[in-house]
Design a protein around this nucleic acid. Structure first.
Lengths: 113, 113
DNA sequence: GCTTTATTTAGCTAAAAAGTTAATTAACTA
DNA sequence: TAGTTAATTAACTTTTTAGCTAAATAAAGC
């Protein structure tokens, strides 16, 4: 799990981290603000943020003693791109079923000749 | 990491497993066929398949001594759905940059009055 | 029934992940 | 400068993950 894509997927494989991202979608927040909804120590949240940062899902500024976090959509866009290769599998699923049924019907007609 | 979405993300956070999915996108395959490209023991591949199966990314049939695997697009569709909530963040990024530049320009004009 | 082929399970090891509390760093504030 | 607030780092524990080899199971084929 050394590549960037794996790291991003791994970062997303945790409900706490996804909740943090959901919060950041509404705008920047500090570590304390992000930690507030969770039954978890601050260092634990800090670690989650480090994971998200390494995965390039967030970036962090520095304003006095605060380290405001913001969402970085690029990594999500990369996931979306990866998914793109598979999208037709579910989008055209019905089409392919219809194709298949059409094929069956044709074969049936062939047999009757 | 007990929920289904986390499990799916975790399953995708491994290059071997993603390669297996890429192979299965081309059609069903047996465990041996799937294992063939990797420098890895068969039990290791078997474990990866179990992870993918638990994540509902694949399902497995049973034909004699073979256990053919096939891709199940539903779990990927779920990921796509989750991503959907964030899609506007990168799709409208340029728009927002343009908005921002427009704002700057307007402010400049205001100052010159 | 014995052998081969396909795959999984058992039992092990090493490394990574997720959490804890206590201590530390950094910057502001009185 | 001493104290407060924000956040991180250190040190530790527990659980999970990814790999291995060797053994077991399951079905087929002679």
């Amino acid at each position: 799990m050394t590549d960037q894509l794996s790291q991003t997927f791994a970062a997303l494989a945790d409900p706490t981290r996804r909740a943090i991202l959901a919060r950041l979608a509404k705008g920047e927040a500090t570590v304390n603000e992000l930690a507030q909804p969770f039954h978890m120590s601050l260092p634990a949240v800090s670690k989650h943020l480090k994971v998200l940062e390494k995965a390039k899902l967030i970036s962090r500024g520095r304003t006095a003693q605060w380290r405001p976090c913001r969402l970085e959509p690029e990594a999500l866009k990369t996931i979306d791109g990866w998914l793109g290769d598979y999208r037709s599998l579910w989008e055209h699923r019905l089409d392919r079923l219809e194709d298949y049924l059409a094929t069956l019907k044709t074969e049936e007609e062939e047999e009757q000749k």
